[in-house]
C-alpha cells in the first residue's frame, strides 16, 4: 500500500488510519502497531521539520515482511539526510543536561530491525523493517 501525505503534523492522524488499514488488509499482528506508528511518525516529523525547501507531498509505502513490516518514506526536492548518521543521545545524562532534541530518530534507530537510506536526484528515501525483534 502507498499514499502521499502533505507536509503537516495534522496528517499524522491520516497516517495512523492508513497504517491501521494496512495492518487489517494483511492481517498483521497488531502488537507491532505501536512500533510502526512511532517510527513512521518520527521520520515523517523529521522530514516536515527539517526539509523545508520543498512543498512536495511525502510518499509512504508499506509492505508485509517476513519479520513484520517494511516501510519507506520518500521526500522529494530535498537535501541529503541519512538518519543513520544522526547524532546519538546520551540517555544516561542527568536531567539538567537532557534536551528533547534528537530523541525521535534515536528511538527509530534503537527499535527497528533494519534501516536503509537512498539519495538520488534530490529524492531522499528512508526505509526500515520493524517488528521482528
Amino acid at each position: 500500500m502507498q499514499r502521499k501525505f502533505s507536509r503537516s503534523f495534522d496528517e499524522i492522524k491520516e497516517i495512523v488510519f492508513f497504517t491501521e488499514q494496512f495492518f487489517k488488509k494483511h492481517d498483521i499482528d497488531t502488537s507491532k502497531r505501536y512500533l510502526v506508528d512511532l517510527c513512521v511518525e518520527e521520520i515523517f516529523v523529521n522530514m516536515v521539520t527539517y526539509d523545508t525547501e520543498t512543498d512536495a507531498d511525502i510518499l509512504i509505502e508499506m509492505l508485509p515482511h517476513e519479520n513484520g513490516v517494511e516501510v519507506s518514506l520518500t521526500d522529494y526536492g530535498v537535501e541529503r539526510f541519512d538518519p543513520r548518521e544522526a547524532g546519538s543521545v546520551d540517555i544516561n545524562a542527568p536531567l539538567e543536561q537532557r534536551t528533547p532534541g534528537g530523541l525521535g530518530l534515536y528511538l527509530v534507530l534503537k527499535m527497528v530491525d533494519e534501516i536503509h537510506y537512498e539519495y538520488k536526484n534530490r529524492t531522499s528515501k528512508i526505509s526500515f523493517v520493524a517488528g521482528g525483534k
Partner: peptide, 10 residues
C-alpha cells in the same frame, strides 16, 4: 512519541 516525551521532559 518523542514530541510527547519532549513535553514531559521540559
Amino acid at each position: 512519541s518523542s514530541a510527547g516525551l519532549g513535553v514531559l521532559l521540559r
